[in-house]
Amino acid sequence: MKRNRRTLFRKFFLNLSAFLGFFILFVFIVVAIFAPFIAPPKPNKNPYLMPIVTWNGNPEAPSPEHRFGIAGKRDIFYGVIWGTRTAFQVGIIVTFVSTFIGLVVGSIAGYFGKLFDEILMRVTDVFLAIPFLVAAMVFTTILGTGLDKVMIAMTVFSWMYPARLIRGNILQVKEEQYITAARSLGVSHFFIILRHVLPNSIFPVLIQASMRMGSLVITAASLNFLGIGAPQGYADWGALLNYSRNWMLGGNGEALKYWYMTVFPGTAMVLFVLSWNLVGDALRDFFDPRLRI
């Protein structure tokens, strides 16, 4: 009986957290899609650049006109809303491209093994050994700043994780007899990978990808925070936090005086990462064959 109650509780909690994850994610998607209506941009201006709303450099507290307050002469509300789009862009593109590269590299290394494996995995090790932030700074110095450059840098330094994961899974799947069976049927290597190996090894990578989606956005935000990412005024949560750098400690004995500068973009970021992690957990439970009867 005790056991039954525990599994019930577990199931309910899992469902609850999965629901929460998908719900937050859904809200973010709605916000991203309807950004032009929630925070209308100025006509004929790049909407991704936060418009300057005041010439006073000091932050301003939330008011009916600027609901989240003002930071660095820009409306925080506008930045948070349009920053959602930036977050999705960075997350989806970087995750997609890096996962794809990782899949190709990892599949070849894992499936063909031997010299391929040796070479590709050593290259992977080299990339893993480079400290990311330093490398990203060097990268942006060479390529120049800009969100696209940040995304390239992040892709270059994140394909190793899916590559390693898929390689490990493939090494396992390769031992299964249905792979030998397919080979003895005369199926070519390409189709064996596509039809037999990947479908049985890719799910952990997809789960990992959804988890990475969140953390990549944090990475992009930290680059933007350091000022080596998106250009001045770009609608991004990290860039918004950048404006709060000088004000974070508050002023005149009021430690929390400028709370709105960090709380709004910070909360957005935390919720975004949380939602992807919860979704990743839900996917894992869904795909775990042991939980299916």
Binding site: E176, Q177, S184, L185, R195, P289
Partner: peptide
Amino acid sequence: FRKNIQMIFQDPFSSLNPRMRVGSIIGEG
């Protein structure tokens, strides 16, 4: 050439791709 010789394997659990339907498993060749 492999069309001429086929194999039957030991482990009935590992020798079938769990994500393929029986029809496609048999029809693949």
